[in-house]
Amino acid sequence: MSSVMTAETTEASEKVINQVQDGPIVVRPEKGVDIKMSAEGVSVFYGDKQALDDISIDIHSKQITALIGPSGCGKSTFLRCLNRMNDVVGGCRINGRITMDGEDIYAPRVDVASLRGQVGMVFQKPNPFPKSIFDNVAYGPRIHGYAQHRDEIEEIVVRSLSKASLFEEVKDRLHDPATGLSGGQQQRLCIARAIAVNPEVLLMDEPCSALDPIATARIEDLMWELKEKFTIIIVTHSMQQASRVSQRTGFFHMGVLAEVGTTEQIFQNPVDNRTRDYITGRFG
C-alpha cells in the first residue's frame, strides 16, 4: 500500500478530478495540487437509516481540510469512512468509492489494519491506553513491527512526543501512567501515538471539544506544524477553529456535502444558502 504512486494510479486520480469537476457545487481545485484521498458518490447506511448521501470530495495532500456542519450532519461518519472505522460498527453499509493515492481502500485485497496504519485517527475524547506514556506511543510501532530494538522504539517515541510538542513536559516521567496527564496533554499524547506509526493522513474527530481554550490553542499550533508532513482532516464544531487552521473547508448538512472549497471562499463568499445561514449563525 505504501508504494502506490505508480503511473496507473496517477491517471486514476486525474480521472477522479475530472469527475468531481462535473459536480454542481464543487469548486475546481487549484492547479498543481496533489489529491491525497478522494471520495466519489459515497453513501452510508446504518441499518435502514441513511447517514450520508452521495458525498464526493477531494482531500488535498499536506493541507488541513476542515469538515463543519451542525450535529448529526454526518461529518464524523464520513471521517470514519476514510480509515474504515465504520467497519467496526454493526449494520453499517457503504456505497460509492473512496480512494487513497488512487487505490480503492474498500477493495477486497486491502488490509484494513495496514490502511489504518496509513490513515491515523485522533478521537474527540482523549483515549490513552491505561499504560505508561512510553508504551502508549510505542504501541503502534510495536504492533506494526516498525522497530525491533528498544533503542529504535525509544527513538521513535521521543521523536513522536517532540513532534506533538509534549516531550518537554513528560520527559522525566515517560514511564508514569498516561492517565495521570491533563486532558490537553492526553490529547497531544494521542496525537503523538497516532503519528508514531508515520501515517500519511491524520483524521481528527473534534480533537479539541473536550479541552479548554489554552489546550485548544496548543493543539491548533501543533496542527499547523504537522501539516508540513501529514494530510490532516479535522471535524470540528467550531467555525472559528475551521477558519483558523484549515486551508479547505467542507460544509455538511443533513447527510449531504452542501459545499466544499477553500476556507477563505467558504467563510467569505459561500455559494450555498445553507452554508451562508450556518456561517452567519442563523442556525446550527
Binding site: N83, M85, V88, A113, S114, L115, R116, G117, Q118, G120, M121, F123, K125, N127, P128, F129, P130, K131, Y139, G140, I143, H144, C190, R193, A194, V197
Partner: peptide, 27 residues
Amino acid sequence: VPTSLRFGSLAMGATRSETIRKVILPA
C-alpha cells in the same frame, strides 16, 4: 473497558486480537 480504548487501538491499525491482547486484557 471503555469502547474508546478499543477504537483507539483499532484506529492505530491493530487487529482485533492484538487489541484484545495488548489493550483490553491488560486493562
